[in-house]
């Protein structure tokens, strides 16, 4: 496969690797990365629903995979990715109404996205662990 970029020897703009990471740029790419991660989660959702439709054994197998320690780590990451994309997405929807574009607003909403994502993830897992202990 011919790669058009390999033929160029001049540096191309933007030279992202020489820029200091900033909240704005990091959150921008984070919204994309979490979106791609959540696409994978959407596949898991369908597998989970198909397992539920297939029967108790298939459902138990999927539940077992999710309950394993590696499944729990992935689920924790997925929870954070979900809240990151949700909060970041709402921030984008607000921007689409042509509001909050001042530098100060952008940084306030940016840090709000980070803080809320962490808080919601922690809250959901705290409640989940309580529920798991309560139902056992």
């Amino acid at each position: 496969m011919a790669d058009p970029t390999s033929e160029r020897t001049r540096p191309l703009s933007p030279n992202v690797q020489i820029y200091r990471p900033q909240l704005t740029s990091v959150l921008s790419i984070a919204n994309r990365i979490t979106g791609v991660v959540l696409s994978g989660c959407a596949v898991v959702l369908v597998v989970w629903l198909i397992a539920a439709a297939t029967g108790p054994h298939a459902y138990a197998a999927v539940q077992g995979a999710i309950a394993s320690w590696i499944g729990q780590i992935v689920l924790f990451g997925a929870t954070f990715a979900f809240f990151m994309h949700l909060c970041g997405g709402i921030r984008h929807l607000v921007w689409d109404t042509v509001r909050g574009f001042e530098l100060r607003s952008i940084y306030i909403s940016g840090w709000a996205v980070v803080a809320l994502s962490v808080m919601f993830t922690a809250a959901v897992w705290a409640v989940s662990l309580c529920m798991a202990g309560w139902n056992r």
Partner: peptide
């Protein structure tokens, strides 16, 4: 999902 943690099939 959170509300159904621990629920059976």
């Amino acid at each position: 999902l959170v509300a159904h943690i621990g629920s059976d099939y």
